[in-house]
């Protein structure tokens, strides 16, 4: 067990090192300047831009910059974001919890809804419920995500005013509110972005879960369970689901890291400044330290997420774990 853990850790470090190096190398080829957009005023002389580059060490040769950057990283310093005039750690510290909240809520909602839909579809296999949800979930996967978000914002937000258009909280000093009010306000603002994201997650989960359930339903032990006179719901939920949910959890575990940065368009449309938007803005601003930090974080999350999902899948599905 310990040996496995150490091996995993070493693997994770190796992966991070490869990512850091390749991103750094890639960025060397990107045209642009960390100060191009920040200092775009009509009368900013080139000398001021040159000073800026020198201040943050962008004028050094790439090799030296890389050495400096990795050195700082080893000491736990992520550097300074020139496009935001803030420490990278602060920027990431703001953005990461927001994304984890958004993605977390969307995953929980989407997973629950998706599994629920799949159960209904399995129960009513080949009947209208199955077909209806089949079409809906197919649409949920096939529709471009940003369009769903835009439609939700325009109609549910701006037109019908059912939910806030954008933002992460109401006006006022949230620190002074009672805890429940803060939670309600947060969920209220999460409704559209998390809903739009959850729609996509639920559709994918439902499609995979349905397929997995139908596969399991053919197994002998299901027939045995039925023969014992158990109700159909009972058979599906108690017997089929535990054996069919493992692959879906694994799928989610794989999806999580890319969701952390991949919600960029949803974050952008709903003014939810999380990691995706931060990385996107950093890419456009050529804010190298911020890009590197965000990418490393995503890698780290991927490694963690995979380990956790593997553990969860083993825990949930002991039978599968014993299979070769």
């Amino acid at each position: 067990m310990t040996r496995q853990l150490v091996a995993r850790l070493l693997h994770a470090i190796a992966v991070c090192a490869v990512v850091a190096t390749s991103v750094f190398v890639l960025l060397q080829f990107a045209p642009g300047d960390p100060f191009a957009t920040a200092l775009d005023g009509a009368d900013v002389p080139p000398s001021v831009r040159a000073e800026g580059r020198a201040r943050y060490g962008f004028d050094l040769p790439p090799g030296e910059r890389f050495a400096r950057w990795t050195g700082a990283l080893v000491r736990g310093e992520l550097g300074y974001s020139a496009s935001r005039h803030r420490a990278v750690a602060d920027v990431v510290g703001d953005a990461l919890p927001r994304t984890l909240l958004l993605v977390g809520v969307a995953l929980v909602l989407g997973f629950a809804a998706g599994v629920g839909i799949a159960l209904v579809q399995t129960r009513h296999h080949r009947r209208w419920q199955d077909r209806l949800f089949g079409v809906l979930t197919l649409g949920g996967v096939a529709m471009p995500e940003f369009l769903v978000a835009l439609l939700a914002m325009t109609w549910l937000g701006a037109r019908w005013r059912l939910f806030p258009v954008a933002g992460i909280g109401s006006l006022g000093d949230a620190a002074a509110w009672p805890v429940w009010e803060r939670i309600v306000d947060l969920l209220w603002h999460l409704a559209l972005p998390a809903g739009a994201l959850a729609l996509a997650v639920a559709s994918r989960v439902a499609r995979h879960q349905r397929a997995a359930l139908l596969g399991v339903m053919r197994e002998d032990y299901i027939r045995t369970a039925r023969a014992k006179g158990l109700g159909e719901w009972n058979v599906i939920v108690r017997h089929a689901l535990p054996n069919a949910i493992g692959p879906v959890i694994a799928l989610l575990g794989l999806a999580l890291p890319s969701l952390v940065g991949g919600a960029v368009l949803i974050e952008r449309i709903f003014g939810w400044p999380g990691m995706g938007l931060t990385l996107f803005d950093a890419l456009l601003a050529r804010d190298y330290p911020l890009i590197l930090a965000a990418v490393l974080l995503a890698t780290l999350l991927a490694v963690v997420a995979r380990t956790v999902t593997e553990a969860v899948a083993e825990f949930v599905v002991p039978r599968r774990a014993r299979e070769p």
Partner: peptide, 24 residues
Amino acid sequence: SGLVDVLIAMPRLLIVIALVATFG
């Protein structure tokens, strides 16, 4: 396998945006 492990963690849209920005 290592490459797959790493790249699968990256949101594909951002990878492509980064590449587009790099290559013009």
